[in-house]
Design a protein around this nucleic acid. Sequence first.
DNA 1: CGATATCGGACCAATTTAGTCCTGTAAATA
DNA 2: TATTTACAGGACTAAATTGGTCCGATATCG
Lengths: 164, 164
Amino acid sequence: MFRLSKVSDYGIVVLAHLARNPVPASRNAREIAHEVQLPAPMVSKILKSLARQGVLESQRGAQGGYQLARPPEAITVGQMITILEGPMGLTECALGADLCTHEGSCEVQSSWQLINRVISDALQRVTLADLIDPAFDEHLSTDDILNRVRPTRSSSVDERPEPN
Amino acid sequence: MFRLSKVSDYGIVVLAHLARNPVPASRNAREIAHEVQLPAPMVSKILKSLARQGVLESQRGAQGGYQLARPPEAITVGQMITILEGPMGLTECALGADLCTHEGSCEVQSSWQLINRVISDALQRVTLADLIDPAFDEHLSTDDILNRVRPTRSSSVDERPEPN
DNA sequence: CGATATCGGACCAATTTAGTCCTGTAAATA
DNA sequence: TATTTACAGGACTAAATTGGTCCGATATCG
Ligand code: FES
Ligand code: FES
């Protein structure tokens, strides 16, 4: 159906909420779930994944909770999706590995790899800061996004999601 | 998992194969399936969808079969995916309709709509002709694709998949 | 007429997803 | 130190989706 899973969907909503509402600095999973109106166990699971991958910092114990580990400009939509959804690739062939049974006979593998890269790059160009920027989502064309010279706030950001 | 379904995957392989091997003009489903080494009933189902949406022309009865209804330059990857996978949208909210239960309280809906448009546009910029062009998939950057001035063969193409 | 093929669905099994729950461990606080 | 809070890490289930098959109807050719 070409949809993101709910995990990614919710995850991005949660991160956007945290970026938009930076205080109080640390909140626990239950509070966050209540704030975004999503099922608490799901949100908890998602928060754990994000913390494990370094997007959130977690504090255990009483008064513990989660907060963003980096400024919103340093977190891209592409990273979030990769973390919550697994390695990006519209088809397995697109990943380049020897996973597809038709490799060798297939005539479109390399094309898929390119298409995949295009999508991936596009998603890496949108940051969490963009998601909560009211100016971002109004009257922008595709080319504005894809060609834009990054504004100051994210000009020096060029990170990848850390492995692990 | 953020993958295209097999239906789309196979569908694109089939179309690429037909574009690359234009003769004989009309072949039946069984032959096509054999040529691309994919399960015949699946291929048949896919061919039917594509024919119904006008990408292929079908000829019934003895000596019948399928052939491309338009030149490869006039068929985009975005169209193929839309036909085989349904309306494109990474989340339901992205479609803009009143489908999501969180609408109103949600803080990222309009951002999703933009992200969605970016992906969609990117996929509309790649045609079937590109997929079978050996030059296409070698050493091209994302920007080459996204910013490229369309070459002659697809400069005047700006169609959408017809509704129905 | 009879053979060939598409058309349009129904149908089923296997996988994936959405969502819950439980046990363990770390931190704060009284 | 005992207690409570809250994350860590999984196992687990039910529901939805997907991949794949099959069939009766219809159209076309010879
Ligand atoms: S279908 Fe897998 S390599 Fe092309
Ligand atoms: S989650 Fe549906 S509108 Fe945002």
